[in-house]
Nucleic acid binder design. Structure first.
Length: 657
DNA sequence: TTAGGGTTAG
């Protein structure tokens, strides 16, 4: 028969302090200690309600504190000594309760050491009490999951180490077999699945799901959602969709807003923004659920990262229209203002900013920085600097990103002395400058034609240990090219290669532009070919540069040939045809532009109506209103003429007849 | 239980 330890803590502590006395009578055998004081507490003043949680034994706190205090190397010995001193034996329920304690939860490694350091007798007792054994493992896994999800603590293992420990624990738990796992309860299965989901252990997660079903636990919607989240976080989107579909067939666990939010997150992470948006409609129209701030924030973040700013902005407007105004999280403002700024609408961004303040939501450095940057790009020097002053007044901390934007703005406004002064003062103030600061300055001096200063800054940057990236090389190459120093520019192109920095479509565009301006057409074409050979996809701007250079030097058909070569490679810059027509019109070569337009239509590369609109716009842009008007009032491009019995489309070249 | 910043080039 087990004997439980009911001796009050104070008396046992007093007894222990006299241990070792030569005349002390022989000690009684150790007594089991249980985690909670007996329900038949003799004190009439103890919490009496049957539903209240049991009073923890004072030993619980002492053991937990010992676990947290002892170094791993001595924990086993310290535990033995502790039990010997107080004549205690830890019961399986006690061990399980200690591991469940809120003090051990944030400390997975001490918890694990505790479990590993249990005296062999205690470990053996646990084996014969599978309910407590399972509870120990569930608590340990919860602790590792907690440490990997909460912000990094010094004592906590990193995410990989936590996952490795967790994998080992699951392996041990599995080794105990199905008999032990039958003791999984609804709450312990929920905890297990949540932990494994948070740790991103997909295989273990699916095993736990099966173990739970084996134990006869009916999954709740919460458990389903945890499983969904774990699958999505592990990148198993297809499996998650299957689970989601399975939920949809059961009334009890029909997907709720959280289920939809998790699935939407999955699509967003897989780069399937379109499917994510389809689920947004589905949840409203079929499931009759109302999207919440998490739904909107997930989708806004997705579209912001993908650069589909108008959709991001539209989602925000939907939030406002739904009257969620007072519950819009700050991060939604960061995203919508950022999107408006990047979409070239800084003043609309400003309006949202004021609305945000009115609603009582505070601004942060990201919002100010995005607005300042956008005002600068829009050439609104006064507004940008006034907003910077406002940011300073707001008391927000100015960090290197904000200063990076300020230096960039000053460079853009041609205030190079002020830009350098700001940059140097950052260095003095201990604000970490980086390659971006240098890139802005190099660009600023290059654009001002002071390319020697650019080169000096470039060398200073390297001397300070910053590695120039392609952005940085490109602005310097651009500066050199704009100053007509093509030899230096080409030398830097070589240096990029030697330094292991990849040339980009920008690098080639800058060089091609510079070489055409120097009338070195063949060299420019060589760079174009080198770019194609490297597998770099030309952008619309790159092709425009090439076409412009060729057309202006009278090599109109060469440009057309290159455009035709791009087609079989599957690369046709979207606006290539438009760009070519524009370039030719701008150069006054309207007849050639019309010939090209006919060729494009004949080859079925464009819709005739669209080409016609392009021509009209290009003529207007080039200042040739007469021809534009003539084209508007003609059937050219879209109409047909009879030539005998055959109907023929009216050609663009008839404009000149 | 679900979401979470801003800066550099033709």
């Amino acid at each position: 028969m087990r004997r439980f330890c009911h001796v009050p803590l104070c008396r046992r502590v007093a007894a222990a302090s006299h241990g070792g006395h030569p005349h002390q009578p022989p000690l009684p055998p150790p007594e089991w200690i249980e985690p909670y004081t007996d329900l038949s507490d003799p004190s009439p003043y103890a919490a009496s309600s049957a539903s209240s949680s049991p009073t923890p034994s004072p030993w619980l706190a002492r053991v937990v504190s010992l676990v947290l205090r002892s170094p791993p190397a001595t924990l086993a010995a310290d535990l033995r000594a502790f039990c010997a001193t107080f004549l205690l034996r830890l019961s399986p329920a006690f061990v399980a309760a200690a591991l469940r304690s809120p003090h051990l939860l944030p400390n997975p490694l001490p918890s694990l050491h505790f479990y590993r350091s249990l005296p062999s007798a205690v470990a053996a007792d646990l084996l014969s009490h599978p309910h407590h054994l399972v509870s120990c493992y569930v608590s340990l896994l919860r602790s590792f999951a907690h440490s990997s999800s909460s912000s990094s603590r010094e004592a906590a293992p990193d995410a990989d180490a936590a996952a490795a420990h967790a994998r080992q624990l699951v392996a041990e738990l599995r080794a105990h077999g199905d008999t032990a796992l039958r003791h999984l309860t609804p709450s312990s299965s929920a905890s297990l699945i949540r932990s494994l989901a948070a740790l991103g252990l997909a295989e273990e997660l699916l095993w736990a799901w099966k173990a739970m079903r084996l134990a006869g636990v009916e999954p709740s919607r919460l458990i389903y959602n945890c499983l969904l989240d774990g699958l999505v976080n592990a990148g198993l989107l297809d499996t998650a969709v299957n689970v989601f579909d399975a939920m949809s067939t059961e009334d009890q666990v029909r997907p709720d807003v959280v289920s939809y939010n998790i699935l939407i997150k999955g699509y967003c992470r897989a780069g399937r923004a379109h499917d994510a948006m389809a689920r947004l409609s589905e949840m409203q129209e079929q499931a009759k659920l109302t999207p919440d701030k998490v739904t909107y924030l997930t989708l806004m973040q997705c579209h912001y990262s993908e650069g589909t700013f108008p959709v991001c902005i539209g989602l925000f407007q939907e939030m406002e229209e739904r009257g969620m105004g007072n519950d819009i999280p700050q991060h939604a403002y960061v995203l919508v203002i950022g999107a408006l700024c990047k979409d070239g609408k800084p003043f609309e961004g400003m309006a949202v900013f004021e609305r945000m303040l009115k609603r009582g939501c505070a601004a942060n450095a990201a919002i100010y920085t995005a607005l300042i940057d956008s005002m600068g790009k829009f050439g609104r020097e006064k507004e940008a600097m006034a907003f910077f002053e406002r940011m300073k007044d707001s008391g927000l901390k100015l960090d290197s990103v904000t200063y990076g934007v300020i230096v960039n703005c000053l460079c853009r406004f041609g205030k190079l002395d002020e830009a350098v002064a700001c940059f140097r003062s950052c260095q003095e103030k201990g604000i970490a400058v980086n390659a971006i600061f240098y890139t802005s300055l190099i660009d600023g001096f290059g654009k001002a034609g002071m390319v020697d200063q650019s080169k000096e800054l470039f060398e200073e940057m390297i001397a300070k240990g910053f590695v120039p990236d392609s952005y940085c090389y490109n602005v310097l190459i651009d500066g050199l090219a704009k100053s007509g120093r093509m030899d230096d520019a080409c030398a830097l192109y070589k240096r990029m290669e030697d330094d292991g920095c990849d040339q980009t479509v920008y690098t080639y565009t800058i060089l091609i532009d510079g070489l055409f301006k120097e009338h070195k057409n063949e060299e420019a074409l060589k760079f174009w070919d080198a770019m194609i050979d490297k597998g770099i996809t030309p952008t619309a701007a790159a092709f425009r540069t090439l076409a412009s250079g060729l057309c202006l030097s009278g090599k109109f058909s060469r440009a057309c040939r290159i455009l035709d070569e791009l087609a079989p490679m599957g690369v046709i810059p979207e606006t290539a045809h438009e760009d070519m027509i524009n370039v030719l019109c701008k150069a006054g070569r309207f007849k050639q532009a019309c010939k090209l337009a006919d060729g494009i239509v004949q080859k079925g590369r464009e819709i005739p109506g669209r080409v016609r609109t392009m021509m009209i716009n290009a003529l207007r842009k080039a200042g040739n209103t007469d021809l534009a008007v003539k084209l508007v009032h003609s059937k050219i491009g879209i109409g047909y003429e009879r030539s005998g019995s055959i109907k023929r489309r009216v050609k663009f070249q008839t404009l000149f007849q």
